[in-house]
Each structure stands twice: as C-alpha cells, then as structure tokens.
Nucleic acid binder design. Structure first.
Lengths: 346, 346
DNA sequence: CTGTTAGCGCCTTCAG
DNA sequence: CTGAAGGCGCTAACAG
C-alpha cells in the first residue's frame, strides 16, 4: 500500500504527456534528445511539465524495453570484509566510476569473499552490462573467479592480471610492473648496491612477479654481478613483514638494499631496521612500490614507484564502454606506465 | 542486431518453464521461495533447468513489475575526482555495501563535484530506492546537497552531519566525535598539559566542531586552568598544515600539546616539529583523530582516536533497509562510539 | 512533426 | 498445486 502510493505519487511519461497536451512518444523523444521530431515550442512545454511534475524516468522500464543495462558491476574479491582497505583499489574504483558516470552509466560495487560469489546477486540476476574485477588470492582461485564471471557470457575487464589471451570478451588492464622493477634496479645499481633483497608476500601475484622480473632484468643488463634474494612474508601485515625480516637477518648478513613489494611492506621493513639501530639510507637503502600520498608521511621519505591506479580505472571504464558500443574489445591487454619517485631512503 | 541476438540467447522464465514442463508462474514461485505452492519434485526439475539453461532473472523486469528498486545510491560529493582518496569514506562504503548485499540489495556508487549533482543520472532517473551521502564542502553547500536529495522524495541517510531533525525521511549516522574530544582532553590533562593547540581545516565541519567541543568539555570539567587555542589550516594537505604551524610558532610560544583534526594533519604537524629539533613527546605531545592502519607506520607511533568507520557504513545500511521495509526510520540520528588508542606521542 | 499500437520479462490475481 | 490473463513504464516501428 505504501508501494501503491509511491507508484501513484511518481509521475510517468504519460502524466507529462497529458499535462503538456502531447503524446507520450513526444515526451520520450524530448527525453532522448531526438529533437529532429520535436518543435522547439513543444520541447519547451514538455520540459516545463517535466520540471513541474518532478518527473524522473524509471530506469528499469527503459532498461527492459531497450534490452540494455546501463550499469557496470565492479566485483572485488577479498577475504576481508574491508574490501576497500587498499588505497590502490579505491583509486581504481574512483577512476572507473567517473568514466562510467560521464557516459551515463552507473557503477554497482560488490565486495565479497570468493566463496560467496556463486550465490551472489550478480550471478543469479541479470542486471549489469558487464563486469570489472579486482581479485585477490592464490592464482588458481583468481582464475576460477574470472572463469565464473566469463561463464555469464558478458564482457569482463580484470585488473592487474594476465589472463587467457584467446578469450575475445576478456580484457586485462594493468600497470607496467616490470618496467617499475627495472627503474628500481637501475636506481640501486647507480648507487653501487650489489646485495639486494626483496620482500614479497607468499601469495603469488602476477604484479609482484613482474616487479621481481623487472629488477632481475636490470641486474642482468648491468652484467649480473649484483644479486637479488627474496624474503617471503606470510602476509603484508606489519607484524608478518617484521618477523620475516628478523628471520632473514638471523641467517644472513644484512643486505645493502631492501625492496618492498609495496609501500607498507617497505615501510614496515624500514622501521624494523631503524628500530634496530641501522641508518637509512647509509646502512641500508629502502624502496617501495605503489606510492600514494602516504609515503610523504614516512621519515625518511620513501623512494617508491608511483602507480597510475586512478588512470587504470579510467582505462578500464573506457575499454568497457567501447566494448559495449562496438561489440568487441579493441585491445585485450592494456598496460599503463608507472613513475619513479626518488625519496630520501636511497 | 547484436542486441537482438543477446536477447534471444538469454533464457527467460518462459524458456525455463517450457523446458521443465511447467507454467512460468511455477518457475517464478521457485525463484522467490514460495515453496508452499510447489512440490519438491517440481522444484528440482525447475532448478535443474535453471542451471542447464544458465537462466538469470532480469532485474529490470522484476523491478518494473513489483515497483521496487533493489539498489541504494551512495553519493560522495567531493571536488576532487579522487573521491575515494579518504580512508574513512572507503571504510564506510565497504560496511554499507556488505550490509546491503547481504539483504540482496545492490550499492550504486557515484562521486561528483557539487555542481554536477543537478545534471546527474541519479537526479534525472529513478533507479535507486534511497540515497546515502557523504558530502564535503562548506556548511551551506552541504545543506544544499542534502536538500536536493531530499527533494527527490526518497529516504536519505547522511554521514557525519547533523541535519534538520524534523525531516522524517532523513537520517544521520555519525560517530561520537564529542566523546572522542573528551577522551583526548582527559588524556592530555592527566599528563599535566596546560597549553593545548588544535589544528583544524578552515572548512567548517560538524565533526571537527564536535571534536573541539569535546576537548573544551574536558578542560572545563577539570577546572578550566588549561587552555585550548585553534590553528586554522587552509586545507588538510601536508604543505598547508606545515605552513599553518610555522605561522603559529612565529607569533606564539611553542605549545605543550598539538591535536590534529585528523591523523594526517597531526602527522604533518609532528614532522614539522621533529624536523625543527623538537622531541616528541618530551617537548611536544601529539594526538590525532580517525586512526586507521596508517598510524602504525609513523614513528613515534601516533596517539589517536580510532573511528568506527566500517560500522558507520553498516549502521547506515541497516537503517536504510529498515526504513524501506517499515516505511519510516526507527531513529533519525545514530551516534557510534569511538575508541581511544594511546601511542608513543603522548 | 505527432499519435497509435504493441510488447520487453516478470509477477499479481484469480480461476482451475 | 498449476495455468491464463493482464499490465507495470517505456520506446521501436509505423501511420498519419
């Protein structure tokens, strides 16, 4: 009954048409900018009535009629309920949302642990025109998620992955992590560092793999006299990183440089060294990855590689919009450059 | 034509019904859990066909028929395109999205500068059942935004505001900033501090006003011998905060304690003092507000008040769901407690 | 330039 | 327990 009242209270295209003394079709034409069919005077009259009656077009009715969903789903698969805790993800979402909104598309956002995906509304309901996905977890699980989304037979854009290049309706958008690794390697080599260590979470990420690969590229290009070892950290948390560093130092001589898989990892490691009397950068040099505002607040200021996360989101939005309009992705693997940002830790 | 194909390819309720040898109504009953009308055997048959045909219910058709929007709009009014740059906002969004998703609602997210609101899709189209809003800017502009949303005659939940308490379909959800201020005041008084300074952005925010009020409450309750002065900073940016502090110190003796309107502000101030030779906490004590993970990474570790941002989002979601179900908000101003988190800066 | 007809996929109502 | 009829608000196609 409240529902009935709602419905009655809300003006329809017909109400506007009657009030303006025209047919519903004319109102529809005005709404959709088909002005070739509408006289300027009629248009004014219709617009005045729209304003007066506070008419708003019912999106679901239009969507049903034209068989088109003007919304894109952004699914963030994360075991933690705080799926937006990561600054990188937030920037991506902002860029994506803005591009879509500008094209009169809406962004529907859902975060969930992997096990909830099959039961989720996005799987059971048909209500978005395509999916963008940011997935965390081991490689096999991530592939499964992408597979499930693709099984819906809708276009999918995945961030920071390298997926099946033969799938025509799947597009990946990522940053040039390998190039970033090379920049770090070159920077450290220029400072005559020969014993490098990189701290990586034990989860296998393509982005991190590429960063490692980039550093190795750089060392190899320089003749291979410098060497890189890896420290595996159980997670990216402050405590896990610190204990991983402690374990390494118990069995090895202190390294000349430490590269964090990302900024928080690097900072946690740096604080461990500093708390144990090492000077940065004199005794040990530190480099991060994925720098955002936060690295300005650490002392000494962290050397890092700045991610184009916002641009990544924009690019994904553009790719998806083009796909929906043209029927196919123009490119199926978009790679964006990163930027080296030297601080005081090297 | 691509559109036509799409439509043909996608199974409808009728296709499922035919394949299962039942009427569409029976399929609908299964989908909506009206099992009183469906035999167990029929249900199995229907479910198998749903699976086999990869049937997904078309949300827009259902929405049109039942005159109900199963999505909530989250609008974030921010002059910067990076409207998700704030950790607080991100946590709120995550909590909100999770509560809504659990109730089979969807969250539609839009960030925009204030001037874009009138032209935005959410204003022109009727496609969500209610709005949640996080608005930045001067007080009058924020009020205008809330007014515009309310003019749509749909329920609205606003974060971190105190609005017209007579509007029955408007609910505010905020944290106990005043209580947080009191906790900070009490903590500093216990350390015999009598000359306090608080750095606040020049924009007028109810949350910040309340934090100031709380500190004042605490000083007054202790007899009023300690005093609090305010430093206005042009913005929350690192540079603006630092120059505001410099200006203050040029005209005043150094304070015994500095309270930041939030953690980044406090950290920027702390770094200014440390870079100029002051020891923390010996020479000056520092306190933040709205602590998240980041404050673990500062040295010394910042004393702060931890926000229940995620819980704020959850609470807003629950309030909105209850409003949609019951027809009215149960409470129109929800206040959540904050938690004091002593660090090494005091 | 404007009006009429028909139907998108689903669910409510009522009759079996 | 199942089926048939009708219509939610909108727009494509065609007629005037």
């Amino acid at each position: 009954m409240a529902k009935k009242d709602d419905r009655r209270a809300r003006a329809t295209i017909r109400d506007v048409a009657e009030a303006a003394g025209v047919s519903p079709m004319t109102v529809s034409n005005v709404l959709n900018g088909r002005l070739q069919f509408v006289s300027a005077l009629t248009k004014k009259r219709v617009e005045r009535e729209i304003e007066r009656l506070s008419y708003r077009r019912q999106a679901s009715a239009r969507s049903l009629r034209v068989a088109e969903q003007r919304s894109i789903g952004m699914v963030i698969v994360d075991e933690s309920p705080q799926f937006l805790a990561d600054v990188f993800t937030c920037q991506v979402v902002a860029g994506l949302a803005n591009v879509l909104n500008r094209a009169d598309y809406t962004l529907t956002i859902q975060g969930m642990p992997r096990r909830h995906l099959p039961e989720s509304m996005i799987m059971r309901n048909y209500e978005v025109g395509g999916f963008c996905a940011m997935v965390s977890g081991p490689v096999a699980e991530r592939a499964e998620v992408v597979g499930r989304l693709r099984a819906l037979k809708q276009p999918v854009v995945v961030f920071q992955e390298q997926c099946d290049p033969d799938d025509p309706d799947l597009c990946t958008v990522r940053q040039d992590d390998r190039g970033g690794g090379r920049l770090i390697g070159d920077h450290l080599l220029a400072r005559r560092v020969s014993d490098l260590v990189m701290i990586v979470p034990s989860l296998h990420w393509p982005a991190v793999e590429n960063r490692i690969g980039g550093v190795r590229d750089s060392l190899a290009a320089a003749g291979g006299s410098a060497r890189l070892s890896l420290i595996e950290s159980a997670s990216e948390s402050f405590a896990d990183v610190q204990s991983a560093v402690a374990r390494y130092l118990a069995a090895n001589p202190p390294p000349e440089a430490v590269i964090g898989a990302n900024d928080p990892v690097a900072t946690a490691a740096m604080l461990y060294f500093m708390d144990h009397g090492a000077r940065v950068p004199e005794d040990v040099r530190i480099v991060g990855f994925n720098g955002f505002e936060a690295h300005r607040y650490s002392r000494p200021r962290l050397t890092t590689v700045v991610s184009a996360a916002y641009a990544l989101g924009e690019r994904a939005g553009e790719a998806m919009l083009a796909r929906l309009k043209e029927g196919a992705f123009a490119s199926r693997d978009e790679v964006l450059p990163v930027q080296f940002d030297p601080g005081a830790t090297t």
